[in-house]
Simulated scan of single mutants.
Amino acid sequence: MIECAHFEAGRCRSCSLIPVPRVEQVADKGAHVRTLLEPFGSPEWLEPFVGPEAGFRNKAKMVAGGTVDSPTLGILTPDGDGVDLRDCPLYTPRMHAALEVLAGFVTLARLVPYDLATRRGELKHVLVTEAPSGGLMVRFVLRSTEPVLRIRKHLATLLARLDEAGSTAEVVSVNLQPEHKAVLEGPDEVVLHGETLTMQVNEVGLHLRPQSFFQTNTEVAAGLYRAARDWVAEHAGDARRVWDLYCGVGGFALHLAAPGRRTTGVEVSAEAIVSARTTATELGLSGLEFVTADATTWALAQDDAPDLVVVNPPRRGIGADLAGWLERSGTPYVLYSSCNAQTLARDLAAMPSLRPVRAQLLDMFPQTGHYEALVLLVR
């Protein structure tokens, strides 16, 4: 079990399963997903993929609180007071050091934390993504552009201090979120330094731009993509046309690229599609196409079905329209990566012709009840 002073003091209870031994956490998650999938067949269940129980998060989504001279980066209490979580054990020591630098930068650049009660202040969140190399993407979520000049003025100092702390800021940007509502970020991004953060996952250097989605746990994400590649090679190695729906920055599509195979990735985020194309070009991969579109709308507009469809939807699942299309399509293989087994089970019920033949739990989110499940469906 990990030790967390914030949990023990009752300041943060986000990791609700900290008192539960890791082996028990994984067993309970395994039992949960097996029960949900039991009505749909008897797939081969592989051993759960388990990464580290601490220091695994590559993203820090920190709410800014406190004052400009004594800022907090973490969460807010119900009363709106800041709880500082710079030393959260889910982050690496390198991330801890970077967050210390960023807290100091809040003071240096006079980025006044936003106050929910008075609706005053500018800095709402500090979002940090850490690559295995030590590279960072740092994003300041602001109410307006008012502090941008001050951030630019002190940017060289920030880059130097992060470097001294053992990290390299590959991207620094400002995200604008002017509205007073519980939304993490807004649609507009001002990039101040760099362009993309490279996340090395297996042999693929995935490029991340601001507003691009990537899995929270790099080691488990690498295991997820390896499993997809191996399962497809074993069960659907002859697939010549592949769709990767909800492709994000192209993790599945890039790992499944093969000579003679045409793979199309579809993602609603234009930034993520630019990232995927950049990685494909850098790796010199052919037969890959990435399209900016809603996955369901795009699929339903196609004239025919591919040999394999990969889906990696958000927690809401793929929904009735796409599940119904897959059921009618005749596509022989579907590889479903799910972060919510309840919506996975609902979607499987809408695709009775596609039966699970292999499944695996991946413990993407230790210390919580959440997990990733990978299921291979065969018609």
Rank of each mutant, 00 (worst) to 15 (best):
P306H: 09
A239D: 01
L256S: 06
D303M: 11
I151M: 03
C339W: 00
P366R: 03
I75D: 00
V126E: 02
T92Y: 02
S329C: 15
E289C: 08
L85G: 01
G74F: 00
A320P: 07
L108Q: 11
A236F: 02
A280C: 08
T281E: 09
H255S: 10
P48D: 07
V183M: 13
A236N: 06
I151Y: 01
T279D: 06
L377K: 04
T196E: 09
A64I: 01
D230M: 05
R346Y: 08
A276G: 05
S167P: 07
E44Q: 14
T92A: 14
S329V: 12
P313Y: 13
E234V: 13
D81F: 14
Q177W: 08
P93Y: 06
M137S: 12
T279C: 08
N58G: 14
N217D: 12
T279M: 04
E47P: 08
V183L: 15
P356R: 06
P93V: 10
L176Y: 05
A257N: 10
P71M: 10
Q215H: 11
L254R: 03
P314N: 13
A293Q: 04
Y371V: 12
M351V: 06
A239N: 01
H180W: 12
E24M: 12
F365P: 00
T67Q: 00
L99V: 02
A160V: 08
Y91A: 01
T35H: 07
A373H: 01
S173A: 15
L348Y: 07
G80N: 14
G51F: 13
E122V: 14
A228F: 01
F105D: 02
G194Q: 09
T67W: 01
R11K: 10
S286N: 07
G104L: 10
E8N: 10
R34T: 03
V309S: 01
E179K: 12
A98C: 07
R161N: 13
D238F: 04
A233R: 15
P366D: 06
R379I: 05
D321G: 04
G186R: 10
H193W: 14
P21W: 12
L362V: 02
S338E: 06
T264P: 06
S167T: 15
R11E: 12
K29E: 08
L308M: 04
A270C: 08
T168R: 15
P48V: 14
E179V: 15
H154F: 10
